[in-house]
Amino acid sequence: MKSALIAIALLGLVGCMKKKTAIATGPVEWEPVALPVPAGYAKVVVKSVRGTGPDDVWVLAAAQRTDDRGAPYGLSFHFDGTTWRAAEVPARATKAIWPVSPTEAWAVGAYGTVARWDGQRWTATKIEGVDFDLLDVVAWHDDVWVAAAGPELLHFDGARWRKEAPPELAGTSVHEVFGEADGTVLVPRNLAGKVPAVLRRSPDGAWRLDEVGPGGVVHLAGSSPADRWAIGAMELAYHSDGRAWRATPLAGTRTLGAWATSPTEAYLVGVGGSIQRWDGAAWQPSASGTDADLWTVFAPPGMKPLVGGAAGLLRRK
């Protein structure tokens, strides 16, 4: 009996150490979007939403086959401004997607898998010698950059894949990459004992390190070089107007995705259905109506923002 009480006390101790989650209260500001899930699929989890504009939006998702109790399959959904259409994504390339044009998009996923959309179908390949997960991607035509939990980026130049390892990334683990319209590549740089920073590759190929501030940089977003965000996991987000980084407090929920629409509009999503909206002065909670984790947000000018996660796809009312 005594030992049973000890075990219960220990379990309680473990329970007390769960990470905190804060859910916004107030009127629900988001509504479900009905995706055309093909017959035979269920439990759709949206992993990544990206696009080149309101008439070229991609949703990358993992979904369970109802006739197969195995691992989830990949699905993608494309919105042309009027209609959503579904297409299977081969081989679990379900970590991240980056559209280049209506006839070119890139998706990445497990164990070196890269899938390319040619306007008609997805074709998957495995990067030779890469036996680990690909976590994020940005792309321009014949210019693709992939983060893969290592001290480098993987780069496709239209002919072959190579590792590009600027010395600033030595000893780090890169989980996210972000791209700007002019071809600039941004990467978080976090290293014990160093000020968290953003490593920036300009289109001419030069790398430059911008120190941000304490707290770590997990996600990157931006609408222009004068509107960049370096976002921490829970407590702080830094905004740059092109001259200096300025810290802004977050709500304390773990962020899993970010998007910046303009200097006065940006979004963060995260665990427990959390959504935070930047109004130009502060981050405001926005009630999603779900407590399921939200992984991704896409909010370009001219369309209602989309967020996605375990609850499927949601659109701001």
Binding site: A71, A91, R92, A93, A110, Y111, T113, A124, K126, D131
Partner: peptide, 18 residues
């Protein structure tokens, strides 16, 4: 939890062959 194979999908090449 989920103890299925990470990559059951027969349509593609992705598992860890290392």
């Amino acid at each position: 939890y989920d103890s299925h194979r990470v990559t059951d999908n027969p349509a593609g090449p992705a598992d860890n062959p290392f």
